[in-house]
Amino acid sequence: MANPNRLTAQQCVDLLKEETGDEIKPVTFHAYVNRGHAPKPVEKIGSTPLWKRSEIVEWARNRPGRGARTDLRKPRRRTKTTDTPGTTE
């Protein structure tokens, strides 16, 4: 009997739609996994990777929204100074 807490890529995609309403294809999910933007599989049956249901639910609830750039660093805040070099009063 299969473990109900282990999901195939298609089941992960279906769960994502249930949890968030977002639709992605299994190939897109695999791309997220390969880039480190989704959880890694926890086991395999034959050549089929399986993911832990609780990790997918957590990822689905906390993943960045559509169009969010995750590869950019946050800009540094500049501090304002009251003294401007080269000016005299």
Rank of each mutant, 00 (worst) to 15 (best):
C12S: 07
S47D: 05
K17W: 11
G36R: 04
G86H: 09
R66T: 15
A38Q: 02
L16F: 02
T81Q: 13
N5A: 10
T70Y: 03
S47W: 03
L72Q: 14
R66K: 15
S47R: 13
K44W: 08
E43M: 06
P75M: 07
V57K: 01
K40A: 15
Y32E: 10
P64L: 08
P85V: 14
R69Y: 06
D14H: 15
D83C: 07
F29E: 06
T48K: 14
K44F: 15
P41W: 01
Q11L: 04
G46D: 04
V33P: 00
T79D: 08
T84Y: 10
I56E: 00
A68E: 10
F29I: 02
P26N: 09
L72H: 06
T84Q: 12
A9P: 00
G86S: 09
R73V: 12
R53I: 09
V57R: 01
E23G: 09
E89F: 06
R78W: 13
Q10W: 03
N62E: 07
R78H: 13
V13K: 00
W51I: 02
I56D: 00
E18I: 14
R63C: 14
R76W: 05
W59V: 06
K80P: 02
G67C: 08
T28K: 09
A31K: 14
P41T: 05
D22F: 14
N62Q: 13
W51L: 02
H30M: 14
R63E: 11
W51G: 00
T84I: 15
D14C: 09
G46P: 01
M1V: 12
L15C: 07
N5G: 04
K17I: 07
E89D: 13
D14V: 12
I45F: 07
K44V: 13
G46E: 07
